[in-house]
Every structure is written in C-alpha cells, then in structure tokens.
Nucleic acid binder design. Structure first.
Lengths: 251, 251
DNA sequence: TGTCGTGATCTGTGATCACAGTTAGGTTGG
DNA sequence: CCAACCTAACTGTGATCACAGATCACGACA
C-alpha cells in the first residue's frame, strides 16, 4: 500500500517554481525554540536536583520559587507537578512540597535499577559508539579528572563533568527513551548522591570513579559491551557503597 | 432540665479514665486517602491510555475533558502536564494536545526497553514470589483465558485481565520504583498495543499470549528466573511482532 | 512546668479571567 | 470553479483571586 498522503514538504524542491533559491534563507533559520515558562522552570529545578543543590528533605514553596525566578506561581506549579509525577519531588498531603528523603531500602532499589538500566545502556553504547562518541566522552573524562584532582577538589565541576560523561555515553546508545528513563533515575538519586560532595569532596580522592571511567573508555574503544557494562556497574556500585557508609539514609 | 452541653464524646466509656485501652478506636481508623482532583483526572487518563481507549494521534481538548469529567480546567491541566512529562501525551507547539504517534523506530526502542525492564522484573518476581503471589496471578490468567476464549472474544476484558496479570507479576518483585518505571512504558505503548484489540480481536485467538502466560506461571512455581524471563520476553515479542505486521506505525 | 487551645500566617488547590496564536469554515475575488 | 483571504471560534498559557487546611508561636489553664 502506498502512502496516501505526501510527506510534508515533499515538493519543496521545484516548489511551484516560486523562490528560485536552491536554499532559501527560510530554511536556514531553525524553528525558534518555543519554550514555555513552565518548561524552563522544570529544567531549572531538574538541574538543581541532579547536581545535588537541593538537599533531601528540603522544602520548597511555590511562591518563593516563583519569586526567585521572577515568574508567577503558575509555571512553578506546572514544573512541580511534573517533577512530582516522576517522584523527583513529593507533595505532602496538606503541607509543603519537598525533596524526597530516601530510605535505605528505596536507595538500594534505585541502585539496582540503575545497574540494570544504565548497564544496558553501556552495553548498547559499546556496540554502537563511533570514534566521535568516544572522543566526546574522553573530553568529559579529562574534565572530570582535572576537577577531581585539583587541590582543593572542584566538587561542582566534578559533579557536572561526571554527569556529562555519563550522558554522553548513554547518548551513544542512540535510544532517546532510554535516556529519559535514566534521567528520571538520576533525578531521584541526585540529591542524595551529590549532597555530600559539597561538604565532603574526599570521595573524589579515592579515585575509584576515575579508574572506572578509564576502564569504561578502554572497553568502548575495544567495542566490548560486557566490559563496558562491568566498568559502569563498578562506578555505580562504588558511589552507592560510599553513600551507604555515610549513613545519611533514613530507616 | 438535662445537663447543659456535654463535651463531645465525654461519656463514651468513662472517658476520663479512658486511655487505659491497649488499642484505641483511633488506632483502627486509617488515614483517609486524600486525593486531589488533579490526581483523579490523571488516573482517569492513564487508565484510558493503557487500555487503548485513546488512539494514537487523537487530540484532546483541556476544556472538553474538563467538561466531560465535571471539573474545571485546572485539574486537567495538571494531569496533562504530568502525562506530557512522561511522554504519554504530547503538546504540539501552539496547537492541541494529542496522544503521541509512535514511529516504527520509537516502537522498537520501546519494545527493547520493555524486554530489558520487564524481563528483569520477571526474574526478580520468580525469585521472590510467594504461593499467594502465584495464586493471584493464576486468577488473572484464568480471567484472561476466559475473556480471550469467549465467542465473540471479550476484548476489553482481555486487555484488562492481561494488565492485571502482568502487574501482579511485577508487584511480586517487591520493587515499587520498578513498577512505576514499567507503568510509564505501558503508558506509551498502550495506545498502539491495544488499539487494534477493539476492532480486531483476532490476535487473541492465536493463543500465543495464553501459552506464554502458562509458561510464565510454571516458571514461577519452579522459582526459575531464567524461564520466567524467557516466557515474558516471548509474550512481549509476540505482541510487538503482531503490531508491526499491522503496519499502523508511521515512518 | 507541662499541655492544650487559639489565632495569625502560609501552604497547595481550584476557579475564573485575559490573551496571543492557531485552526477551520465561509465568503469573496479572480 | 478554484484559490485566496478573512473572520469567528477555539487552543493552551499565564495571571489573579478565593479558600480550606496545616503549621507555628504565643498564651491560658491545670
């Protein structure tokens, strides 16, 4: 069966002979991104969460956030609504909205899911990564190494570079929905994973993350899915073990 | 003249000496569930999506939905906002909000993710399922078998029983976040997976689903994770293959 | 001194209004 | 008869207002 309708813009070339330009200026300008205020606020809050800038248990006020961002309460409501749907924030019955406090059991479940999902992503990335992908990851690895090795360690820079490195890896898998899935996991794990970085960058000195990243990169160059998965799992497990040791998790 | 006004429940049973009960009546009553309108609307739309009652590409109007549900536009906005965050609905730039239309590539990615995540859930369920869990799943299996074998087939009943069966399995894994993850996948796959059931229940007659369910149950009874995963993967793959054959997916 | 009631203040939720942008339908001009 | 325009209805977004419920601090009572 033939497609009943022409694909949009099927006859753009030789289009009615109207604008005789091979490439019109109109084709150059991309559709300017129309981002609603609600989406912008959502992005802002997401960034704060994954970076650990919002501590578990911290309470947010719609009106305060709205005022801080210079918008009305409405877009903030929408953003909180979305994040609450993903359990990245939680709204207590009649009280305020706050960053969820994970129990030990919840944190362990989250870690197991990360091992499964991100491990799969690493495998897939190892199969499909192009040299360009690997080069991109190497750049973030260098940035992470530099931030972590600095004296004193650049915690914020390390957290940021670590995020970029991981998601550059997941991008290489070429599965958009998978990335969204992992972003949701990071949204939940971010606050507890990165909260201590602020006051306690000692973990970076251990070097386990840098070692895992090195093994990961080598596995990518060899296109070895199993090794890539193993390296990433070690990275996740080591960070999780450190968090559990700090004992900041509730019962 | 009777005593003026008794304090509320003052003489229930020698109230002053009251708290001598080991268990007060106050301990019996559970906190009554407080569900906001927004949450209720969200649940309503979610049910419609997973059941395939909303077709891919179908457009929704906030005002129409609000009127249909007898609420104001506000709760509907919140519900749509949440579902859009999960890509279960999408809001076109300046137009309406509609049920996403999956491309073939998107559908295949979704299927792969389901194999990974739901396969893991099946493994875990096989390890942890109690006889009660298995019995619960068997009930839904019987309901599904009955609905699918009826003449004419009870499509709605089969879809519903199939959903109950799968999520009873995932519940047995005892991982709440995992269930939410799977619910999001079903939210995206539901419309395309179940749309044809309405007009074309022929697929049920094939019996591949019933066979996979039987193998799954047997694996659960034997506590065999690998077999449970294999059975579930066959179930998912068979349904996905059928959908691809119908060719309702866009480019 | 400890406990409970009470009021002011702040919370999220829901409704209503205003608006820019889009869509669809009908009409007009060729 | 067809295409282009134009208007009216409808879209989601955002702001503002109203309200029930929760929190917290202060004060009165036991």
């Amino acid at each position: 069966m033939i497609a009943p309708v022409q694909p949009l813009g099927a006859d753009l070339e030789n289009a009615s002979a109207a604008p005789e330009h091979d490439v019109s200026a109109l084709d150059e300008i991309g559709a300017l991104q129309r981002e609603t205020l609600g989406e912008r606020v959502t992005g802002e809050l997401r960034a704060l969460l994954v970076a650990g800038r919002l501590a578990p248990g911290e309470k947010l006020s719609l009106r305060r956030v709205a005022e801080a961002l210079g918008v009305s309460m409405m877009p903030v409501r929408e953003a909180v609504s979305r994040l609450a749907a993903d359990r990245a924030l939680e709204v207590l019955p009649g009280r305020a909205v706050r960053v969820p406090v994970l129990s030990l059991a919840q944190f362990r479940e989250l870690t197991r899911l990360r091992l499964v999902v991100e491990g799969f992503a690493a495998e897939e990335a190892a199969r499909r990564a192009t040299p360009d992908d690997v080069a991109r990851i190497e750049v973030f690895d260098a940035a992470f190494r530099k931030a972590a090795s600095a004296d004193p360690p650049d915690s914020a820079g390390a957290v940021s570079a670590n995020r970029d490195l991981h998601f550059a890896l997941y991008e290489a898998a070429g599965m958009p929905s998978l990335i969204e899935m992992i972003e949701r996991l990071w949204l939940k794990a971010g606050p507890i994973l990165n909260i201590d970085m602020r006051d306690e960058p000692r973990r970076l000195k251990g070097g386990s993350a840098m070692q895992a990243h090195a093994r990961l990169l080598e596995a990518l160059r060899r296109q070895d899915p199993a090794a890539a998965r193993a390296a990433l799992e070690d990275d996740i497990a080591a960070a999780a073990a450190h968090i559990e040791e700090t004992g900041q998790l509730s019962a």
